[in-house]
Design a binder for these strands. Structure first.
Lengths: 232, 232
DNA sequence: ACAAAAGTGTTCTGTCTACACCCATGC
DNA sequence: GCATGGGTGTAGACAGAACACTTTTGT
């Protein structure tokens, strides 16, 4: 049977990729949503996404859609889950390969009047009604992020290049929804040897300014090849 | 835009579900493969799977195909990853939602001359050439199993209702590819309180017979709702 | 000088690791 | 009675949790 003879005559579902984009700002974990300009769910908010083209795989599709709809590119992105329930899209049979991405929000501030679509960051604690089954996708993405941030250095993807230990701790506390001990957190995170001291501090605050650090990507890669496992 | 007006006119990929089935027997982790009777890859081995029908979601498709091709049903099954690379199927554009399943192999011995397809268990250490990109799927499934067995009680899905602690330990050693201390393993696994002592022992061995236990599913469910986390 | 958050060290406790001997059984 | 694998306890190392005081800086 060669390529031309392949006839899978059954109706095929349409395939899309959707992307949950997380950011962290002002002490809040946020997601980027797009207001839909067309039916179905016109006026509702939804994750950026769109249909798979024949010349790309799902990863490429997710990145393309993300860029087209928000201008964001070159970020951490990982496949999350494929949602295929009947009726999840009122237009007909559509299955979606969901992704989640982590962006340094400070480097991706949305300009007013950005693009054609209305894109906005929402704190995860107060997202509006979502289109399709995007609430389930969000729940899955949050669960993945919470589960994975503890044993993979995902936190750094959400912070600027330079960050302070208290900022990092705050991020962990927000994502994990639990208070951590300052001293123990600092000791543990510095003990990994993965933070590079920038020997600069926060200025202009009415108290001692926290010191800046950067994440040592190369060292992490090196260590994980040797079987080291990051853990908070 | 109502349902009838939905025309996504672009060509659509075909969508299939494939299932990696793990079993454990004779001290070996095994996978169930089917010998393909049709092109492409006729004569090659592949995971059971097939195309998504319009009246089912991917989970249902995976279970249906598993049952149709092997007679196995009612087993632990979880979505693994969606593979969508161009060219992964020589017949044309096919994306597949991969699953993995864990079966109690002792209860699913294959009868000789089972079904139409030739199905066979292979030790994961010596699988033959696989069709399509099924080698990648297998690698992903193994990685998932190894990662997850440590903090979810997956091991019990691979053993008979009644099993001994040394059997369980052997399973963990096989999957994790590392020796564990007998005393510490027993202490730790019994300390979870999730094993029910059957007060029976292995008979007919030329040494003291190991005691049988069962996994307490109800208690596990109960405990995990309370935030308990299983860990080996 | 005071308010506010950053930074630091020590003790305690519980868990993981390493390890050696006795027990039960079939031949 | 011996070979084989199953079952048990304990001491030392290590890591995580709890906790209070000093430092820096802007007002």
């Amino acid at each position: 049977m060669d390529q031309k003879q392949f006839c899978y005559e059954y109706p095929r579902p349409a395939v899309s990729a959707d992307c949950v984009i997380f950011g962290f700002d002002e002490g809040d974990l946020k997601v980027l949503l797009i207001e839909r300009g067309a039916e179905p769910f016109r006026g509702c908010w939804a994750f950026p996404g769109g249909f798979l083209e024949m010349g790309e795989n799902a990863d490429e599709c997710a990145r393309r859609e993300l860029f087209e709809e928000t201008g964001i590119k070159d970020v951490f992105m990982e496949q999350l889950y494929t949602f295929s329930d009947i009726g999840r899209d009122p237009r007909g049979r559509v299955i979606t390969v969901a992704y989640y991405a982590l962006v340094k929000l400070s480097e991706h501030k949305l300009q007013a009047g950005d693009d054609a679509n209305k894109a906005r960051w929402f704190p995860v604690s107060s997202v509006p009604m979502l289109a399709f089954d995007h609430d389930r996708i969000l729940a899955a993405a949050l669960a993945r992020l919470r589960g994975k941030i503890r044993y993979q250095p995902l936190g750094f993807e959400l912070l600027p290049e330079k960050f302070t230990v208290p900022e990092l701790q705050h991020l962990y506390e927000t994502v994990l929804e639990k208070k951590l001990d300052r001293r123990n957190f600092r000791r543990k995170i510095l003990a990994t040897g993965l933070l590079i001291d920038r020997f600069e501090s926060v200025k202009g605050v009415p108290h001692r300014g926290a010191g800046y650090f950067s994440f040592d990507r190369d060292k992490y890669r090196e260590l994980s090849e040797k079987g080291f496992s990051f853990e908070i």
